[in-house]
Computed example of a mutant assay.
Amino acid sequence: MTTEVLRVEGMSCGHCVKSIQQALADIGVNGDVDLAGKKVKVEYDSSKQTLKAIKEAIEEQGYDIA
């Protein structure tokens, strides 16, 4: 398993947390969203998923990866 911490801009509420968690779950990635720290810690199998796809899933929800 690979673990990365992404800085995510634009999160402001619990709905933001849930939408990011759901987007990650939809592509088979575990995500721990830290609203106050504006970070998302993701854990994924790099043989099944790419960091690029993870970033795109978050960006598709309307958030920016710093």
Rank of each mutant, 00 (worst) to 15 (best):
C16W: 08
C16M: 08
C16T: 06
V17Y: 03
K18A: 14
K18W: 12
S19P: 04
I20A: 04
I20K: 04
I20F: 07
I20N: 03
I20D: 02
Q22C: 09
A25P: 05
G28E: 07
G28D: 06
V29G: 01
V29R: 02
N30W: 09
G31I: 01
G31V: 02
G31S: 09
D32A: 10
D32P: 00
D32Q: 08
V33C: 08
V33Y: 00
V33H: 04
V33W: 03
D34S: 13
A36M: 14
A36I: 13
A36L: 14
G37K: 12
K38R: 13
K38A: 14
K38C: 09
V40D: 03
V40M: 07
V40N: 02
K41S: 11
K41R: 14
K41I: 06
E43A: 12
E43R: 11
E43L: 03
D45H: 02
S46A: 15
S47T: 14
K48G: 04
Q49R: 14
T50L: 02
T50Y: 02
L51Q: 01
K52P: 09
A53M: 10
I54E: 02
I54Q: 00
I54F: 00
A57P: 11
I58H: 02
E59A: 12
E59C: 08
Q61L: 05
Q61H: 05
